[in-house]
């Protein structure tokens, strides 16, 4: 890692929902241009950890440090922080009452107060980038799941975030549509985007991930390069998990 800038640092993070202790003393750092893949069984806390990184969930204790700035949800303007940390959801969450292009330019128009002409120009470029230039004026209900997710990625990129979080971006897709979304993510990684990805796609983790983090029961069990994790896991629980899914 060394000289790369630190984008996210999580320190001693704890999060509970009522009596349920979901995250237990999590420490994690994500550096510039890293692709960090979080894997683990459902209920292990991966998604909650991801959601703590853009403050859709607020930690109970510990620190979340974004680009060197310790974010206190009470004092920091979270709306400003979230502009730097984009998120892509499992169920896309496109705005169904807006066309594809309007989905993409909504936040640039209303949050960044961009001029419509400029926002539309950038929006169309982003749609071209995710291969959906011809769908600009279509409503989301006319798109396949894979197309929806690529629009969601373009919508998130429209805010020019420094970091992108992906919360199981392909889990709701039919198998034949997974590839197009993963390849969009792959090209984003190639451009040097800092990414944190929760996924069950081990192929993606192995090929695109710089780091793979295995979580179990609210704790990080093991973190390493994909080759080490997949070929030579140190921890018994990592071995058990990998042998159960591969």
């Amino acid at each position: 890692m060394g000289d790369k800038a630190e984008m996210i640092r999580v320190e001693k993070l704890n999060k509970s929902f009522g009596d349920l202790h979901v995250l237990k003393d999590i420490d994690l750092e994500v550096n510039e241009s890293d692709v960090v893949v979080l894997i683990g069984a459902s209920g292990s806390g991966k998604s909650t950890l991801l959601r703590c990184m853009n403050f859709l969930e607020i930690k109970n204790s510990g620190n979340v440090i974004i680009e060197g700035e310790t974010i206190d949800p009470k004092n920091n303007d979270l709306n400003k922080v979230r502009q730097r940390v984009g998120m892509v959801f499992q169920h896309f969450n496109l705005f169904p009452h807006k066309s594809v292009l309007d989905n993409v330019i909504e936040a640039p128009l209303t949050v960044k107060k961009m001029k419509r002409a400029d926002a539309e120009k950038e929006g169309k470029e982003l749609l071209a980038k995710v291969g959906l230039a011809d769908k600009a004026n279509v409503y989301p209900n006319k798109l396949s799941g894979g197309q929806k997710q690529r629009v969601a990625i373009a919508r998130s990129l429209a805010m020019k975030p420094d970091i992108m979080l992906f919360d199981e971006p392909t889990s709701a897709l039919d198998p034949e549509l997974v590839g197009e979304v993963l390849s969009t993510m792959k090209s984003l990684a190639k451009e040097g985007m800092t990414m944190v990805v929760v996924t069950h796609e081990m192929g993606f983790a192995r090929e695109v991930g710089d780091w793979v983090v295995y979580m179990h029961d609210g704790k990080i069990v093991e973190k390493g390069h994909p080759n080490d994790i997949f070929n030579d896991p140190k921890e018994q629980r990592t071995q058990d998990f990998l042998s159960s899914i591969l």
Binding site: N79, F89, N93, F95, E106, A107, T110, V111, A152, S156
Partner: peptide, 26 residues
């Protein structure tokens, strides 16, 4: 769906803005 509010917030919209632009029209 509460994912609509989350999507708006994750783009940097305030609660009020997301309510006005995303939730209320639907």
């Amino acid at each position: 769906d509460k994912g609509q509010m989350e999507a708006g917030r994750s783009l940097g919209m305030s609660h009020t803005l997301a309510m006005r632009r995303i939730i209320l029209p639907q």
